[in-house]
Design a protein around this nucleic acid. Structure first.
Length: 260
DNA sequence: TTGCATGTTCCGGA
DNA sequence: GTCCGGAACATGCA
């Protein structure tokens, strides 16, 4: 689930429900998803603090308070639930931030990801570790500059969080399909026109996905091919190909995205 | 039962 | 140093 658009949706969700609420207590039925402190340490740092406006950097959510910051990563399966009606908790609600009215539940099925505590920006940086600029903050020339000295396959570069933060497997495939570029295209072979299309595709895929709150499975996009056996390209009707690129499950159109 | 999955990290090899 | 593939991590589902 969590690609950049999903995390942005979670950020807005936290802003809508938790911002301004005072944390009364932290409960951690799944203590092992708390990565750099203990449930007690997290509780001590947060008790009496108020959630402020959250930030996002790539796929990381920074749940700010008037004291420490809770740094969250959702792996492939994480989400957040705000409950103010006493709804039953889920088995995978591993960390609960109990507030004055309601509680924020960090839910993680497969335990990739987790919750970190950071007391300042330096510690936030230590946790997230050398992230590149957020994909949404890039201009066309920023993207060109980042790719300038890069070698290897384009898909690998797009998914490198240290280069650009926020592009995951699904978004990478979608962007490449929109830009009519094969995932194995060598970064060094990109021309100015290719960079124009790549940047435009990235903007479109990210902004439209954010509007939806997630990467949509859409008929006119490549995404729909992930659900369908023998899917056809929405642009040219050629059969979509599926294989592994950069060790990741990859879909592309052999006609629109010719192999370099 | 087996393989696969939208995440990151670590390792060995080219 | 750079880049790539593969393995590992934990869990649910087809």
């Amino acid at each position: 689930m969590p690609e950049l658009p999903d995390v942005e949706a979670l950020r807005r969700y936290v802003a809508a429900h938790a911002t301004g609420r005072t944390i009364e207590r932290v409960e951690a039925p799944g203590a092992d998803v708390i990565r750099n402190t203990t449930p007690q340490g997290l509780g001590r740092a947060l008790k009496g603090r108020r959630f402020s406006e959250p930030d996002r950097h790539g796929k990381w959510l920074l749940a700010r308070t008037d004291g420490s910051t809770v740094v969250m990563h959702f792996g492939m399966t994480g989400t957040l639930v705000w409950a103010d009606d006493g709804a039953a908790r889920d088995d995978h609600d591993h960390v609960i931030f109990r507030c004055d009215r309601g509680e924020l539940r960090f839910n993680l099925t497969r335990k990739f990801g987790g919750v970190w505590l950071a007391s300042d920006e330096r510690e936030v940086g230590d946790v997230t570790g050398g992230l590149g600029p957020d994909a949404l903050d890039l201009g066309r020339d920023d993207l060109a500059d980042l790719l300038e000295d890069r070698r290897g396959m384009l898909k690998s570069a797009l998914m490198d969080q240290q280069l650009v933060a926020g592009i995951g497997n699904i978004v990478a495939d979608e962007v490449l399909w929109h830009a009519c570029l094969h995932p194995r295209t060598a970064v060094g072979d990109l021309g100015e026109d290719d960079l124009d299309r790549l940047y435009e595709a990235m903007r479109i895929v990210l902004t439209e996905s954010i509007d939806e709150g997630h990467v949509p499975r859409r008929d006119g996009w490549l995404t729909h091919a992930r659900d369908i056996e023998d899917a056809a390209c929405a642009r040219c009707d050629a059969p979509i190909e599926h294989g592994r690129v950069a060790s990741r499950s990859t879909y592309w159109c052999p006609r629109c995205q010719p192999r370099p």
